[in-house]
Nucleic acid binder design. Structure first.
Lengths: 229, 229
DNA sequence: GGATATTTCTGCACCGGGTGTAGTTTTATA
DNA sequence: TATAAAACTACACCCGGTGCAGAAATATCC
């Protein structure tokens, strides 16, 4: 009768999205309350009023219940490098992007201290299986970035992989460091200046190389190199 | 009576070592024959004539049945950096160490084509859970190296972690690349020259920085920079 | 509007990795 | 030789994840 065929996703699709959200929400609520390791998927399914089998139809693993939101970030740096304006170096493009994200307190930089974000970050970092899955994302980001470098700068394969891994690693460590500091109680706004300085330092180091890492070994003050970070 | 109390380990300890070896051997044999994912720990325990519970008393996880041999490598680079002669830079120390290992065809460089090594490498790389556990080793190596840098060069915390991660990553990618090539049929001796060249290139890149990564984006040949790797 | 085909959901049994426990065998000690 | 300590075993169990067969819900066609 009066059913209108507008372009919007039909009842089936809408229901699926609602179910998906319900499962994910129930999961995160329970995980935050009792800890990732102490809640079974069966309990999550129960809370979401769905069978265990259905839960696994929506999320392939328990970890995905938490991390599915972060999946897009896997290709983020690759996209940034691809989208940089002609003539710009990939390293500078990534640096600028990271600085911009810091400015917006994007949770991915670790510089967001909204309580829920904070608790989620802690949970991920504290759970071995979640942390390990994050490492997987990192590896994926390296692959994607390597390909982007290979295609948009004409760097050979090995160089692309090396550069990609190093760039992703820098972003990763910076985010990790910020997250740890906020988890230890620092406020995001108070940390901001330091985070920016660290990011700039890190990208400078990566740009200039580890060439002049202090070779000093024996006790006694180092000869030169005043600036330290 | 005639029991002599020399310093050697005593019956109990000796038996434990034999059992441990028996379990590990049975595991690797079965895994190589049928694949890591297709053999259950119960089957391994069976083959080693040991109960499943005992198996897990010796090896905390299934993956450890394969990877326990590689655990020492986690601190290898850290030891190298600590043991470098005074006045030498950490980067050079690691580079020299890697080159030395390539010369000896140390399996850890990926440049060993003994059939059993080859098959084991393939198995590890092809099994997600083993590969992921390897990533864990990599992370451990980064932590250990960072600490060594912090203590023997007077680099600050963040810098140490960045440098450590980059150094470990280089070694990792080089090894991975060699392993892949040998797995694809290349002979170790034939690959050796290329492996050395790649290692030197990688450490040079790391020393000099990603500063001058070609910024070219638009199609059309790149303006300068002839040397490519 | 109803019949039918398709998709989704469900319960259930099962697998494999891993652990707790209680009791038995083996090695060490005296 | 008795006894204490350590190692091993069987068994039951938890949890994440999958295969399967049938029930329920949605879409489609007349």
């Amino acid at each position: 009768m009066w059913t209108v065929d507008d372009g919007r996703p039909g009842l089936r699709e809408r229901k699926k999205q609602r179910t998906r959200a319900a499962i994910s929400d129930a999961a995160i609520t329970l995980f935050l309350e009792h800890g990732f390791g102490k809640v079974s998927v069966a309990q999550v399914a129960d809370a979401a009023e769905v069978s265990k089998r259905t839960l696994f139809a929506y999320f392939p693993t328990k970890e995905d219940l938490v991390l599915h939101r972060l999946a897009d970030h896997e290709t983020e740096l690759a996209r940034v490098v691809r989208a940089r304006e002609p003539g710009a170096g990939p390293l500078a493009a990534v640096r600028d992007h990271v600085l911009a994200r810091l400015r917006e307190r994007d949770p991915i930089t670790g510089l967001n201290d909204r309580p829920d974000v904070l608790r989620l970050t802690r949970m991920i970092l504290d759970s071995p299986s979640l942390a390990s899955r994050m490492q997987g994302f990192k590896a994926g980001a390296e692959r994607a970035l390597a390909q982007a470098l290979r295609e948009t700068a004409d760097t050979p394969d090995l160089t692309s992989r090396l550069a990609a891994a190093q760039i992703v690693t820098v972003q990763w460590i910076l985010a990790h460091d910020n997250a740890r500091r906020l988890a230890d109680g620092e406020a995001a706004d108070a940390r901001y200046a330091g985070a920016v300085a660290d990011a700039e330092h890190a990208f400078t180091l990566l740009g200039n190389g580890l060439r002049d890492l202090t070779p000093k070994r024996t006790p006694g003050r180092s000869p030169k190199r005043s600036q330290k970070r």
